[in-house]
Design a protein around this nucleic acid. Sequence first.
DNA 1: CATTATAGCGAACGATCGTTCCCGTGTCAA
DNA 2: TTGACACGGGAACGATCGTTCGCTATAATG
Lengths: 214, 214
Amino acid sequence: MVCDRSVAFCVGGACVAKDTKERILAAALEMFSQNGYAGTNIRELAGSVGMGKSSMYRHFESKAEIWNALLDEMIAYYAERFGSPEHLPPVPDSLEGLVAMTMGMVDFTVHDEKIVMTRKVLSIEQFRDARARELATRHFLTGLTEMFTQIFAGMMDKGLLRQDDSKMLAFAYTAPISALIHLCDREPEKTEEAMAQIEAFSRHFVKTYQKTGE
Amino acid sequence: MVCDRSVAFCVGGACVAKDTKERILAAALEMFSQNGYAGTNIRELAGSVGMGKSSMYRHFESKAEIWNALLDEMIAYYAERFGSPEHLPPVPDSLEGLVAMTMGMVDFTVHDEKIVMTRKVLSIEQFRDARARELATRHFLTGLTEMFTQIFAGMMDKGLLRQDDSKMLAFAYTAPISALIHLCDREPEKTEEAMAQIEAFSRHFVKTYQKTGE
DNA sequence: CATTATAGCGAACGATCGTTCCCGTGTCAA
DNA sequence: TTGACACGGGAACGATCGTTCGCTATAATG
């Protein structure tokens, strides 16, 4: 039987197409996030993976297919990471726990290079590609909001937050944090400052919406 | 004396260079906001102003100069429109006045095509051009926040809002609104829905931070 | 073993890019 | 009228783009 690269169970120095494909996509993500799709050329892309230009076409039949495959990967990664309910973080047991959990999430999402580059690509290409547009809305707006809608509902049930519209609270909480994450993407030298701002905002938020009296 | 196109006091069908320059920049803004700087070519750009490719170089000496001139214009427009204190909207006399003022501003900024295209261009080019990066931060984050910091301070003085950190409140107020404005840029068909969300958020905000008791 | 498929390479293709050159036209000053 | 000059058009330049071709080496297949 012929080596099936779509499954990549082959071993040794050869038949590593799957691997190469992923290295290409990783390099593409990096270049697209810096110069955009139109501003990236195949020669540089191939060079950064250590290949000649033409070898690229053994793995992808066109530049557009690289873009689509990258988008597929980003969509799949997002669905796996944020789409399923079992990946919901546990409802915090205290207001301070909410702050800590928030800072943990932000710290991860701001320092994970792949996620940072994904946000950049989506910012650049959101007006040109319909699927990028959809994913951008989920990344930048609805994803975090839906997640925190459930968390806040749980915290209200526990009596940690005052009874209120949990969806509205989630939106009011995540949108400012999202804005500061964007700032970190744009001006990485301000990351520390932005993280401090996020923590201050988080504390202000819990002070505002905490359950008072009984 | 030779017609001085830098002042554009000439009349009639000729000597309208200043006008042509502005038409070129307007067309450039439109194309850059759709396909980005790298994705835009001079031929199409010239065509959309009704000129041959080469005539473009009578007015700008390169594609990069068009980009820089456009950025100059955007920076100048922003400074004039939002930079000076005399353009601050008056402090509302009531909480409902804040909601109304907010909706008026949002309605303008979401429907003014030039401003919409400016935001799109900044989204696309913020990671490639240092000046675009700076302007993006002001457009997307600090501009509105600084403006509402003063407005909220005034409303606290008037006893309309409870005493609090006006800068923090401004950030908590403007960031979610900004996020929904971005949604309108990205998915214009959701504009009505987003506007309703902004109004609901604004009302929720004033309910949360209004002065209570006597 | 011979065969076949895979994956790399350099050369080269046609298209398109930003840009330049040259020429024609209309308008102004002298 | 005659230059000078601003402005526009079309042809063409060299560079670079995405892409294809033909070749070679290697490794799995039977």
